[in-house]
Amino acid sequence: MTGVSEDDSVTLEGLKKKMAEFAKERDWDQFHSPRNLLLALVGEVGELSEIFQWKGEVPKGLPDWKEEEIIHLGEELSDVLLYLIRLSDICGVDLGKAALRKVELNAIKYPAKLFEDSSKKQNHFKNTTTTDGIDIIDHSSESA
C-alpha cells in the first residue's frame, strides 16, 4: 500500500478496494465474517472512546490538544471507518448510497423549517409514522 498525498482524492469505493486487497494479501478473508468485523469495529469504537474518556467536554477543533493526541485520534477514527467500510463490503451494502439515503430520510424526519430559530432537540417534538415507515415530526402539540 502506498502513501497518500494531499492531492489524492479518497472515496469510499477506493477505501473498500484497498481494504479488500489488504485482507486478500494477508489471507484474512477467512476471518472477515460480518460478526468478526462487527466485534472488531466495536473494539475500535472503544479505543476511540478512551481518547475522550477523561477529557470532559472538548471544544471544536481541539485547540488545547497536542499534535500527537490529534494524530492518535486520526488513527482511531480511521480504524473505525476502515472496519465499517469492510463490514459494509462483506455484507454487500453500498455504504455511500446507504448514507445518502439516510440523510434524505433524516431530512424528511427532521425538516429544517421545524428547527429554525429553535434550540429544542428532536425529543421535544412528537413523532408519527407514515404508512411507508417514515417517521414525521408533528410539532402541532408544541406551544409557541
Results as ranks from 00 to 15, higher is better:
L95H: 07
L105H: 12
K18W: 14
T131Y: 13
A99V: 07
E116A: 13
Q53E: 12
S118V: 07
L84V: 00
P111G: 08
Y83H: 04
E76H: 03
L15D: 02
R35K: 13
D27N: 14
E6A: 09
T2I: 07
E21M: 05
E68F: 15
G61W: 03
G46V: 01
I70L: 14
A144K: 06
T11V: 02
S33Q: 09
D135S: 09
N106E: 09
L100D: 07
E116H: 08
K55D: 06
S118W: 12
E75Y: 10
A98P: 03
H124Q: 07
A107N: 14
Y110T: 00
E67C: 03
E50C: 10
V4C: 10
D138T: 07
D79A: 06
L77I: 05
W54N: 10
T11R: 05
R101V: 04
I90R: 11
M1H: 10
L39P: 07
G56N: 05
P59K: 01
D8W: 11
K126G: 03
A112N: 03
K121P: 01
D135E: 15
L105N: 05
Q53R: 09
A99P: 02
K16Q: 13
L48F: 12
F115H: 06
C91E: 13
E67N: 03
T130P: 08
V45I: 14
V103M: 09
L12T: 04
L95W: 08
S119G: 06
N123E: 14
S9H: 09
I136W: 14
A40Y: 12
V4F: 15
A98S: 10
A40H: 13
E76L: 02
S5M: 09
G96C: 02
E75K: 08
A112P: 00
V42I: 15
G61C: 01
I70Q: 04
C91G: 01
V103L: 11
E50S: 11
K17V: 08
E116G: 01
Q122K: 01
L38A: 12
D64M: 06
A98T: 02
L73T: 03
K55N: 09
H139K: 09
I85P: 04
L38Y: 15
E57V: 04
E44C: 05
E69Y: 12
L73N: 02
G92E: 06
D94T: 00
S118N: 07
L82D: 03
L105K: 14
I85F: 11
S88D: 06
Y110I: 02
E68H: 13
I134E: 12
I134F: 15
I108P: 05
R35D: 14
E25D: 15
S140Q: 10
A40M: 14
D7C: 09
K66Q: 13
N106Y: 13
G3I: 12
A112D: 13
L100V: 05
D132C: 08
L105E: 15
A23D: 14
K66R: 08
D8P: 03
G3A: 14
